[in-house]
Design a protein around this nucleic acid. Structure first.
Lengths: 222, 222
DNA sequence: CCTCCATATTTTGGATCCAATATTGAAAAT
DNA sequence: ATTTTCAATATTGGATCCAAAATATGGAGG
C-alpha cells in the first residue's frame, strides 16, 4: 500500500486514481504489458470502476496505457522503435523549448534551476531512485517552462510520461545517477552564459545516454 | 466513396459518441467556448452519460475540450497565442515527418497522394466544406504516414484536431480552397522529385497561409 | 490425442440511481 | 438600492446493477 497518507486527497476520485496509477506505473508496481483488471484495482483503491475508467482514458491519451474495445487496458509496453521515436520527437521539441527559454531566461529562472539541480544532487548522493526521477523531471520542466509555450511543454511532459515506466530502472544504477548530475551541470553552465547552441548540445548528449541505457534495459527485461 | 450515411456504428457507444462530438465540433455545431451539458447531449445521442464522459476525457487529452472538476467540460477556445504555438509545433513535427517520408517514398505512396489530391480538387470545385476538410486531412496524413513514425503522426493528428473547430470557417472561403489546391500541387511536384527541402518549404508556406487566415477569423468571431 | 463446438465464467461496456458540489434566485438585513 | 444569506435547483461525480462481449472450460466426435 502507498504509505504517504499525508498528502491531501484530490477533490475527485478520478484524480486520486490518476495519481495512484501514475505512481504505480512509474515505480514499476504495474509492469509494462501487464493487463489492468478494473475490478481488482477499483477495490484496491476503494473506488468504483467509473472513476477508474475515466482515469484510464486520460492515461490512454498520454500513451501510458493501451486500450482495445472489449479487451481492456494494459500498461503500455515500448518497443525499441517506439523508444527511439519518442526520443527523436523529444529532441525536436526540447530544442525548440530550450532555444525559446534561453531568449527569455531571467535570474529568477536560473535560481530555480540551480535549486532544482541541488535537489537532483542530493537524491543522487542518497541513491533515492524515486526522488531522483522527481527532481530530474523538475529540473528539465523548470527549464522548458521558461519557454512560455505551455502546449509545447505539455507535449514534452506527455512524452516523458511515456517512458516513466522505465525510468526507475535507469536511476537504479549509481553510474547513471552520477552522469546525470554532471550533464546537468554542463547544461546549467551553458544556460548561465545564454549559450543556446551549447545548451541544446549538452541536452542532446544527455538524452542520447539515456536512450542508449534504456535500449539495453529493454533488451534484457528484469 | 465517403459520405455513405450507412456508416457502421462503432462497436462501443463511447467510440460512437467520440465521432459525433468530433463532427459537432469541427462543423461548428458546438461552438468554441460553449459549455457541454452532459445530460442534454447524452439524451440527444441516445446514450447514457457514462460513455459520453469517457469520450469527453479522450477529447480532453487531445485538447479539443477543457475540463474543470465539478464544473464540467467546454469546447476548447484557442487564443491567438495558442494558435501560433500549435502551428509552430506542427512546423517542427511535420518537417521531420516529411523528410523521413521522402526518404522512404514509394510509387504506391505517390499514387495514394495523387488520388487524395484528386478528392481535394473535387471537393474544392464543389464547394463542399466538410469534404474539403476531410480530403485535405487525408492528403497530409497519407504523406505523414509514409514516415513510418506512428507516434509522430499521432501527435500531429492531435494538433490538427485542436484547430478543427475553426477549419470549417476556413474552407468556407472559395479563395482559400483554391489556394490550398495549388499549394498541394506544388507539394506533390516536389515529392515526385524527392526534393525534401522544397517539399518542406511548400508545406511551411501552406501552413503560414492557414494560420494567417485563422488569425483574422479568431479576431472577428462569427 | 487433438479438434471443434457448446456452455460457463470472467471481464468489460453501459444504464440508472443517488450523492456531492456548484449555481441560481429570492428574501432579509444594512 | 445594495449586499448577504440561505434555500431551491441544476449539474457533475460516483456507486451499483445489468447487458454484452470475450475468454476459459469441458465434453463429444473424429
Amino acid at each position: 500500500m502507498s504509505s504517504d497518507e499525508a498528502r491531501r486527497r484530490p477533490p475527485t476520485a478520478q484524480q486520486f486514481v490518476l495519481g495512484e496509477l501514475r505512481l504505480a506505473i512509474t515505480t514499476g508496481r504495474l509492469r509494462p504489458g501487464a493487463p489492468i483488471r478494473q475490478d481488482a484495482l477499483a477495490e484496491e483503491l476503494q473506488v468504483s470502476r467509473v472513476p477508474l475508467r475515466e482515469a484510464l482514458k486520460t492515461l490512454e491519451g498520454e500513451g501510458l496505457v493501451t486500450y482495445k474495445a472489449h479487451k481492456g487496458y494494459c500498461v503500455a509496453m515500448l518497443s525499441l522503435d517506439d523508444l527511439r521515436e519518442v526520443y527523436r520527437i523529444r529532441e525536436l521539441l526540447e530544442e525548440e523549448a530550450v532555444r525559446r527559454a534561453v531568449e527569455r531566461l531571467t535570474d529568477d529562472d536560473l535560481g530555480r534551476l540551480e535549486s532544482a539541480q541541488e535537489e537532483v544532487e542530493r537524491a543522487a548522493a542518497a541513491g533515492d531512485v524515486l526522488a531522483m526521477a522527481t527532481a530530474n523531471r523538475l529540473f528539465h520542466m523548470t527549464l522548458f517552462d521558461c519557454a512560455g509555450m505551455p502546449r509545447l511543454v505539455r507535449l514534452i511532459r506527455t512524452l516523458w510520461d511515456t517512458t516513466d515506466a522505465y525510468r526507475s530502472m535507469y536511476y537504479g544504477d549509481a553510474g547513471n545517477r552520477e552522469r546525470v548530475v554532471k550533464e546537468h551541470r554542463a547544461t546549467l553552465d551553458a544556460l548561465r552564459r545564454l549559450a543556446a547552441d551549447e545548451a541544446v548540445t549538452t541536452l542532446d548528449i544527455h538524452r542520447a545516454h539515456a536512450v542508449a541505457e534504456l535500449e539495453s534495459l529493454l533488451d534484457h527485461p528484469a
